[in-house]
Design a protein around this nucleic acid. Structure first.
Lengths: 214, 214
DNA sequence: GTAAGTTTAAAACACTTGTTTTAAACTTAC
DNA sequence: GTAAGTTTAAAACAAGTGTTTTAAACTTAC
């Protein structure tokens, strides 16, 4: 365990603390003390707390997006047919799996981090993520449109955000929900369990297996 | 505008600032300066920042829950048949409508506040809300269970939270999404428009018009 | 071994935070 | 008018924040 560099240990500690307590609620002194390094080291390696936050996201978001795009291109070209919604969302899940290996705890942690990035008001961080990864997101949206071609753009727009909300909200509050489920139902669940339920929910909602009653 | 009491002006300012910036990111000095009152007034009337947060939620959550329960009881007894998911969610919408009148901006703001209460790590606030409004929430869950009787409890638990996430996320970021829709699609929508799309989405997702593929 | 880069220790900086206190002024009710 | 309650002003408190600086020690590469 002594092999990791100071910068890596800072990133590890920061990722854990950010995910569990939020950004504003986590201090640099808390991070460095958990990492077992000196306070000055964080500014030496990253420059500021803001840049440290960006580095935490960059470290795992970059390989994730690279892998996802690779998968999208190959699967999109191999078969002339369009990808289904389930296949698209499943692709994201398997990509995340590939990046995180079987360390589902780290995966869960980063998912919560993504939720916080959306929910928490961190203007600079949001700008950074948008500028850096916005294109990948938009390219993914194109595939979703292809998977639901008969739907009006306006309707699809809202349904995508409904589905996105379901995912972000659930993953962001995953820890809390886990506790409730344990206490009230006496059941325990892991993140993969939830994700496999989440994907069909999103797909069904977007596809809209809804018969109008009015 | 000079009619409102000091306590009310503090609550108003706090509600707006909490909703837009989050809890930790909003200082008491920011609140009191926006409210145009003295800093000491907040501790005089509420005791602490934590109690102020609770008071903000209590002010609008209490009438909402009271009205909802009243509606649930009358509609549940009048007809022996169970209420459908669409009817249940529609009941929440009309209850919110009744409490907030046509001030859709305040409604949207409070929805975002509810989202933050779930997402943001505020242990004391979560405990307070659970203790104070947990029963109403559970009673509502019973009606949902009756509307989807054939589903496993665990599965239903998660689908409810998926649907909840879709609602909270969408309504909370309604203002931002409206802008995007206007800019990218040249379309404008009102809150009722979105709600009428949201209710079927939630109902379809929970009911689970999904065929298992594994 | 020398130089460059890294890490630590300790302290200080300027600033913000929630909270409390003091005294004076104001409002309301009886 | 007196008393109780309210609100303000201003200041201080103790604690925590991100950031910077200093000097010394350590590691690595050439």
């Amino acid at each position: 365990m002594g092999k990791s560099t100071t910068a890596e240990r800072i990133l590890d500690a920061a990722q854990i603390l950010f995910a569990t307590k939020g950004f504003s609620e986590t201090s640099l002194r808390h991070i460095t003390s958990k990492a077992g390094v000196n306070l000055a080291a964080v500014n030496y390696h990253f420059g500021s707390k803001e840049k440290l936050m960006q580095a935490v996201f960059e470290r795992t978001l970059t390989p994730f997006c690279d892998n996802l795009e690779k998968q999208l291109l190959t699967h999109g070209q191999n078969r002339g047919a369009t990808l289904s919604l389930e296949e698209l969302f499943g692709m994201m899940v398997s990509t995340a799996d590939g990046v995180y290996g079987d360390d589902s705890k780290e995966f869960s942690r980063f998912m919560r981090l993504m939720g916080l990035a959306y929910t928490q008001t961190q203007e600079e961080l949001r700008a950074f993520l948008g500028e850096r990864y916005g294109m990948v997101f938009k390219r993914f949206l194109v595939y979703i449109k292809l998977a639901a071609p008969e739907m009006a753009p306006k309707e699809l727009f809202w349904r995508i955000h409904f589905a996105l909300g379901a995912a972000v909200f659930t993953l962001a509050s995953f820890g809390g929900l886990q506790e409730v489920l344990q206490k009230d139902y006496g059941m325990s669940v892991g993140l993969p369990d939830v994700v496999t339920r989440l994907v069909p929910f999103m797909a069904a909602g977007i596809r809209g297996d809804v018969e109008k009653e009015s």
